[in-house]
Simulated assay, not measured.
Amino acid sequence: MTQPPFVFDHWASAHQQRVEEVLSRTLPSEGTLPGHLHEAMRYAVLGGGKRVRALLSYAAAELAGASPIAADASAAAVELIHAFSLVHDDMPCMDDDDLRRGKPSCHKQYDDATALLVGDALQSQAFECLASTSAPQALKQVQVLATATGSRGMCGGQSIDLQSTGKLLSREALQTMHQYKTGALIEAAALLGAYAADHTHQQLITTLEQYSQHMGLAFQVVDDILDATADTQTLGKTAGKDALQEKSTYVSLLGLEEAKALVNTLYAQTLQLLASFGPQADPLRGIAKFICERPF
Score class of each variant (00 low, 15 high):
residue 235 L to H: 03
residue 124 S to A: 15
residue 227 D to R: 03
residue 257 E to W: 01
residue 33 L to Q: 13
residue 23 L to W: 02
residue 197 A to V: 09
residue 25 R to H: 11
residue 38 H to P: 06
residue 41 M to K: 00
residue 208 L to Y: 08
residue 1 M to Y: 11
residue 174 L to Y: 09
residue 145 L to G: 10
residue 286 G to N: 11
residue 178 H to M: 07
residue 89 D to Q: 04
residue 283 P to R: 13
residue 155 C to P: 01
residue 167 K to C: 12
residue 213 Q to K: 15
residue 192 L to V: 03
residue 63 L to N: 00
residue 102 G to P: 11
residue 168 L to I: 06
residue 115 A to W: 03
residue 106 C to G: 03
residue 267 Y to P: 00
residue 226 L to Q: 09
residue 144 V to M: 11
residue 160 I to G: 08
residue 247 K to L: 06
residue 224 D to Y: 03
residue 89 D to G: 04
residue 190 A to H: 07
residue 258 E to I: 13
residue 46 L to A: 07
residue 263 V to G: 11
residue 125 Q to D: 13
residue 181 K to G: 01
residue 62 E to N: 01
residue 197 A to I: 14
residue 289 K to H: 15
residue 263 V to I: 12
residue 246 E to Y: 10
residue 134 S to W: 14
residue 156 G to F: 11
residue 114 T to E: 06
residue 109 Q to T: 09
residue 267 Y to G: 01
residue 44 A to Q: 01
residue 180 Y to D: 05
residue 239 A to H: 05
residue 150 G to E: 00
residue 225 I to T: 04
residue 68 P to D: 10
residue 277 F to K: 15
residue 19 V to F: 03
residue 14 A to M: 13
residue 49 G to S: 00
residue 118 V to M: 06
residue 77 A to Q: 02
residue 226 L to V: 00
residue 38 H to F: 11
residue 187 E to H: 11
residue 20 E to K: 04
residue 244 L to A: 15
residue 73 A to N: 02
residue 82 H to S: 09
residue 75 A to I: 06
residue 199 H to Q: 15
